[in-house]
């Protein structure tokens, strides 16, 4: 299913109504070449299902992992992703940009 910015927040609401635990990730800052603009959303449920995007697919895996932790812990987090570095364990953006992503639980 193709998801657009329009229906992601509606989906978050309906997921919650269905009793699923949901986290919302939002791109809050970008530097350089970033694939998704500030304000882009990704929603994740506790089973790892997700809708939307915060990058071109480069860091979604890491965001989903962190989002599941946020669902468990409750406190929001700010994640930062930069240029991919083969020596770094974290996911990176191969486009050379940097992004910051705010992850919060939908209570």
């Amino acid at each position: 299913m193709l998801s657009t910015d329009t229906d992601i927040l509606s989906a978050a609401e309906s997921w919650r109504r269905d009793g699923r635990a949901v986290a919302l990730a939002t791109v809050i800052e970008t530097w350089g070449s970033a694939p998704r603009p500030v304000g882009s959303h990704l929603i994740v449920d506790d089973a790892g299902n997700f809708l939307g995007s915060v990058s071109g697919g480069c860091v979604e895996g890491a965001v989903i992992t962190e989002a599941i932790e946020v669902i468990e812990a409750g406190a929001p987090r700010v994640l930062e992703f930069g240029v991919a570095d083969e020596t770094a364990w974290r996911a990176g953006l191969s486009c050379g940009g940097r992004i910051r992503v705010f992850v919060e639980r939908v209570d």
Partner: peptide, 14 residues
């Protein structure tokens, strides 16, 4: 985000 805020936001969007 509180669920009531999300509902309110979606209502404004709708």
């Amino acid at each position: 985000m509180r669920a009531d805020l999300l509902t309110e936001l979606n209502a404004e969007r709708a």
